[in-house]
Design a protein around this nucleic acid. Structure first.
Lengths: 248, 248
DNA sequence: TAGTGGTCTAGACCACTCC
DNA sequence: GAGTGGTCTAGACCACTAC
């Protein structure tokens, strides 16, 4: 069952992406859209709110909505899972477990994932045949066994865990910064030691807020870019000061 | 005039940040909140939608909302303006124009900012007394004069432009990646050439969608981190493949 | 001043979770 | 089956923009 406002949003999005509403142009008023789709104004507002969240349109009180762009943000799954992102965008990709071991949780990990044992996995992932990403993931103990059952060249860990134990990754927090490649990073990615990597540290939880994994992902410079569209009314991104003692 | 739902959101946010609703705990139901605040259910839903957008709470149909965390995302102004961000977070900061000149727009810039002349400004910004950010900003020709009138050590360009010509930065698009420091970057930031920098390229427009500026900002590694909180239902971040020919 | 989006209400029905 | 959040309606008033 697809909601009414979703279908309205789909139709409007299609019109925007196909150029029916050029960038910078005005969208029809809520009243006009309500009449066109034979829906209440509230439903139309929900639909355009979807487009606003995707960064496609902007709005302000008293003036008509305007079209801001034609690139929309992706689903949570596509941000969370390298495989789902790569597949949805038509890239050739691969992945391989390099190392995997259980060990006791450190103090920091205990706070984040729960006490006891954790499973640490080192994966190397490639895009268009080139190694681009070193993933160091620490899984909470309660799901270690499920991860260990996966094949070493498992394409999508996210999908495999859903199929095997019904696990849904629902919420994520991501920290993005730049770091110099360490010796292992350099060897795996085929870059010089100290060269720039784009780092994404993430922790993920289930719907219930139960922590699942914590990961340190490093992309080779030039392989991947993160993109955000924001507005005076909606701002998902946070900038934080780091530790200035660190010097490259 | 502050909206009702904003005040409700403020109160609930305060309770979450002060620990009144611990992380992982359930929020009261919409019906309970409606009764407590003597508001319609729709108004309460608007309020919790604000908290969800800030990444503080998560929700799913049929189950109560849960508290996800205690760090909230910042306002657009704080992401857009280094000065406003630094001030809001209690940092000591400074800035200085290093170089500034008018020149004809390149082909790419013409498409992004409009034809004719543009103004290119090179600024160095510091945090806690240390240089951390090199900003190379290109302003559209129509606002070049206003920028040239600013003092070289202007703290907040955003605020100054609002005060002088009423300009409001309303929408932004941001691309985030890692690059090696060039010769000029290295000299200004006091790092080795080739060492990692966190790059944020942004283009900003007015409420009407009129392009204002396009900037290439480079942070010294370790000085600043970007943070995102997302969920299966709301995902503001986009990951894009870069040009793999680039090698560090 | 007319038109537009922003806020708010009151009520209905449905899909889903949890027990 | 009771409770909860998700969807949708119909209508009202207000703040703001554009002219």
């Amino acid at each position: 069952m697809v909601a009414r406002y979703e279908r309205i949003a789909d139709e409007l999005r299609g019109e925007i992406l196909s150029g029916g509403h050029p960038i910078g142009s005005q969208l029809p008023s809520e009243a006009e859209l309500a009449e066109r789709f034979r829906a209440a104004r509230g439903t139309v507002r929900q639909a355009v709110a979807v487009l606003a969240a995707e960064g496609l349109v902007g709005s302000r009180q008293g003036a008509r909505r305007i079209v801001l762009g034609r690139t929309r943000s992706q689903s949570f799954a596509e941000l969370h899972s390298f495989a789902q992102w790569a597949r949805a965008n038509g890239h050739r990709f691969g992945g391989q477990v390099i190392d995997q071991q259980r060990r006791p949780a450190s103090t920091v990990e205990s706070a984040r994932l729960g006490r006891g044992e954790v499973l640490e996995v080192l994966r190397l992932r490639s895009l268009e045949g080139e190694p681009v990403l070193v993933e160091r993931t620490v899984y909470a103990g309660w799901m270690a066994a499920a991860v260990e059952r996966l094949p070493a060249d498992c394409e999508s860990v996210t999908e495999a865990l859903y199929d095997s134990i019904g696990l849904v990754f629902a919420y994520g927090e991501h920290l993005i910064d730049a770091v110099p490649a360490g010796a292992q990073d350099a060897r795996l990615l085929g870059v010089r030691r100290g060269s720039p990597l784009l780092r994404q540290r993430r922790t993920t939880t289930t719907h219930e807020g139960r922590p699942v994994e914590s990961s340190d992902d490093r992309y080779r410079a030039g392989s991947v870019t993160f993109s955000i569209r924001n507005s005076i009314g909606a701002n998902p991104l946070v900038r934080q000061a780091g530790d200035l003692r660190f010097r490259a």
